[in-house]
């Protein structure tokens, strides 16, 4: 029973995430495409640009949406005209995948390096305990004698 409930919960969560994405793919809005595409002359997203080519691109996108094109189709047509640089995010395939993978690999490598450094550090420092790190193993004779004298006076 609980397993069925858990399955239904996972399915409904997955649908709640996937359904809007699918709707956005089939029926994109001008506003979301303006955020995902770049004006080639000003290098900002279309929603932040009012240059002549940005205005023309917005007009083109509105026309393609009205014609029933999907988001991918509109992007493909614009990439065909202006190249990959028109996308505000690099595609997740081919050589451009490196743009996504490299930061993750870098972060992973940094985490591994920090972990290895921490592990090595903890091993070379030895066990932490009373008298091991705070105090030296032996005091100079003169100082030791003085400590003994002070302790004797304190006890006496």
């Amino acid at each position: 029973m609980s397993r069925t409930f858990l399955g239904a919960l996972v399915l409904s969560l997955a649908l709640s995430v996937c359904a809007p994405a699918s709707a956005s793919e089939r029926h994109p809005t001008l506003a979301e495409l303006e955020r995902e595409l770049v004006c080639p002359t000003c290098q900002t997203t279309l929603d932040q640009s009012d240059s002549p080519i940005a205005r023309r691109m917005k007009q083109y996108i509105a026309g393609r949406i009205a014609a029933g094109d999907t988001k991918s189709e509109i992007k493909e047509k614009l990439v065909e005209q202006f190249g990959q640089g028109v996308l505000s995010e690099p595609p997740r395939h081919g050589f451009a995948l490196l743009a996504w993978a490299l930061p993750l690999l870098g972060a992973g490598a940094a985490a591994l390096a920090l972990g290895a450094l921490g592990w090595h550090w903890s091993r070379t420092r030895g066990p932490v305990g009373v008298g091991t790190a705070a105090a030296p193993a032996s005091l100079p004779p003169q100082l030791e004698r003085r400590v003994d004298e002070e302790l004797a006076r304190f006890d006496g």
């Binding site: 390096a113 290895a116 450094l117 090595h120 550090w121 070379t124």
Partner: peptide
């Protein structure tokens, strides 16, 4: 060893 790693990272 640690000093060497730290120097390398720097």
């Amino acid at each position: 060893m640690v000093a060497r790693i730290r120097l390398g990272a720097q």
